[in-house]
Design a protein around this nucleic acid. Structure first.
Length: 580
RNA sequence: CGGGGAGUGGCGCAGGUUGGUAGCGCGCAUGGUUUGGGACCAUGAGGCCGCAGGUUCAAGUCCUGUCUCCCCGACCA
């Protein structure tokens, strides 16, 4: 490709709208262009990288036994009504009517059409398991797009769906996809951590996110540097047994005692006043899960994870009760406790022990109760983990301190189970001839978002540094000087490299050396080859890797072989081996 | 949806309080001189100042409305 013919141009200055590096560099390189908020065009160079990323995905999906297909981007609303999501999801799904008045939607994901296909084509256990995938455009009218390609409204996603006869089969296959995901990211030069994700209100046993750790990310994950535990904030757990004072026998009185605690309406102030460890106090919060009030009790030093609570109560989200709502429930803010309350659902966090006594509110202004034993002095409807893990909390696996990091979620894997097959009646006949719902898994990965992460993970102050595996071109050939000799030499090098099947971007423009070098650095092809009077005098062409500071002179005759060998070794440097 | 900011040639910005012929840098076009890290000279093209109303002899500038975009938050299968 000749730069003089290239569609798109480089920008010297940082566009005003760009915040994060990938956004700025892709814009400045003339690789993407915004049409509307969260809606981008990919110009030729970026599109070549996109196609390479897709091919890496195809290779790994094929290796994971998945078959590529394609599904529509416009769906009749019927299938979304069948699954129940037509009413469940909000305005992020675009809905419209076709000319004859039928309700249609724009695909925001493809569980519905793929489940429809499954029920049409899968009849027997003999066909299972089966895995399909497609790379398709989706549209979600996000409340807020941001960060260039990181969060957009229209995006291309690789989506795989697996169908199984039972949970066991899904459990066996699930790790195969996880492995493919790690390999895809690695092949693209994007280091990711596999973190446990929120399984959502459907429950289920498996959900993972593949996250590129970066300060500009919008996801929050908790990591254990010691043992490698990694979880999304929504799903993260902590070890609640560490550092809890041993309960001495005499500390459990036969009944709670009311004590005056004037003005002590926070855990910290009450515990300080009474000389207690916050780990021996009970924090009481009231939330609303829809219309239903829910009282949450947990150990005083912990915070509520609202996502866990929402999942427990099978709602989309919960909200903290307003002060007036507390009053109407007969509760006193700052002195609340589950002791004596009736007619309200009580969730106890499993940090609380029924074997020891705690400090709790007295449901009376200015008073607390000492010696409250969960289960004995108050009832709860369910005990579960609803605590939030925070920076420094003990790792649930090894007990070491957890670290909070930001990251970009490039992909996720999820055990769907029968969430879609049951309502949509996607059934198969088992060996005994019984009809059973298909057990499904889904595996999604954003192509454009991965491209953004490639740039985030591979750039410097001058521009992009493409990994060889996804680089739009392998070689950026720079012709310098106006002499006939140099020009001709560059032209013949270009022709030669093309003939040898090397992907080469050729800067044949009539620009100064500075402009060409700076553009080469910005565009970021992995190998730069310079042909000039100077290089010819030194015996050939200068070959320099974008990621390294210095180049070498290579004789023109040896150039194609030398470049091929660099390309090969650069690809091998990145590509994962058989094991990973 | 809440808070903040911005819309003036392709990009980055000035002008606005004090209304009076729309400006700068980069880029682009033509010619010439240059050519190993964002060259120089000359000439030139390109903008109904987001849009719609209003005030005024006169609006980029003042008033009202509206749309769009960016950032923080809410939200995120």
């Amino acid at each position: 490709m000749r730069m003089s013919q290239r569609f798109g141009r480089t920008l010297r200055e940082k566009p005003a709208e760009a915040e994060m590096p990938s956004h700025e560099l892709l814009l400045r390189a003339g690789m993407i262009s915004k049409l509307a908020a969260g809606i981008y065009s990919y110009l030729p160079l970026a599109w070549r990288a996109i196609k390479k990323i897709e091919d890496i995905m195809r290779k790994e999906m094929d290796a994971a036994g998945a078959q590529e297909m394609n599904m529509p981007v416009v769906h009749p609303s019927d299938i979304w009504e069948e699954s129940g999501r037509f009413y469940q999801v909000g305005p992020e799904m675009v809905r419209f009517k076709d000319r004859s008045g039928r309700d249609m939607v724009l695909a925001m994901t493809h569980e519905e059409p793929v489940t429809d296909l499954a029920r049409r084509f899968i009849d027997s256990h003999k066909q299972l398991p089966v895995v399909v995938y497609h790379i398709q455009t989706k549209f979600r009218d996000e409340p807020r797009s941001r960060g260039g390609l990181v969060r957009v409204r229209e995006f291309v996603m690789k989506d795989a769906y697996s169908f199984h006869a039972d949970e066991k089969s899904l459990d066996e296959y699930y790790p195969v996809q996880c492995r493919a995901y790690r390999r895809i990211c690695q092949s693209c030069g994007v280091p990711v951590v596999q973190v446990q994700g929120d399984v959502g209100m459907m429950g289920g046993t498996g959900a993972h996110e593949f996250t590129y750790i970066t300060d500009v990310g919008e996801d929050t994950v908790l990591l254990c540097p010691k043992c490698g535990y990694a979880a999304n904030r929504e799903a993260a757990c902590l070890d609640k047994n560490l550092g809890v004072p041993e309960p001495a026998e005499e500390e459990i009185p036969s009944q709670p005692t009311k004590v005056a605690t004037p003005g002590r309406d926070t855990i910290a102030s009450v515990c300080e006043f009474l000389g207690k460890d916050p780990k021996t106090s009970i924090k009481t919060m009231v939330y609303f899960a829809g219309e239903e009030p829910v009282m949450v009790v947990l150990r005083g030093d912990l915070d509520v994870n609202e996502k866990k609570l929402a999942n427990l109560r099978k709602v989309e989200k919960v909200r903290l009760a307003e002060p007036e709502e507390l009053k109407s429930l007969g509760l006193e803010q700052g002195y609340m406790s589950p002791v004596g309350v009736q007619g309200i659902f009580v969730v106890a966090d499993d940090s609380l022990s029924t074997e020891r006594a705690y400090v709790a509110g007295a449901n009376e202004h200015g008073y607390h109760l000492v010696g409250v034993v969960p289960g004995r002095d108050f009832r709860y409807d369910v005990m579960a983990d609803i605590a939030a893990a925070r920076e420094g909390d003990p790792c649930p696996v090894c007990g070491d301190g957890l670290t909070v990091k930001r990251g970009i979620e490039v992909g996720n894997t999820f055990k769907l189970g029968t969430r879609y097959s049951v309502p949509m009646k996607a059934m198969y006949q088992d060996e005994k001839g019984e009809m059973k719902p298909l057990v499904m898994g889904c595996y999604g990965m954003g192509v454009g978002r991965l491209l953004a992460c490639v740039v985030e993970a591979n750039h410097d102050e001058k521009g992009i540094i493409w990994p060889m595996t996804v680089a739009p071109y392998h070689v950026h050939l720079v012709a310098l000087g106006t002499s006939e000799e140099a020009r001709n030499a560059a032209e013949s090098v270009y022709e030669r490299l093309l003939a040898e099947g090397i992907e080469v971007l050729y800067d044949d423009r009539d620009e100064s050396a500075g402009v060409k070098f700076n553009d080469a650095d910005l565009l970021g092809m992995p190998i730069r080859v310079t042909v000039s009077e100077r290089s010819l005098k030194r015996g050939g062409a200068e070959v320099k890797l974008r990621r390294l500071p210095d180049g070498e002179i290579v004789a023109l005759d040896e150039l194609p072989e030398r470049l091929k060998s660099i390309i090969r070794s650069e690809i091998e440097r990145i590509l994962p081996g058989e094991e990973s």
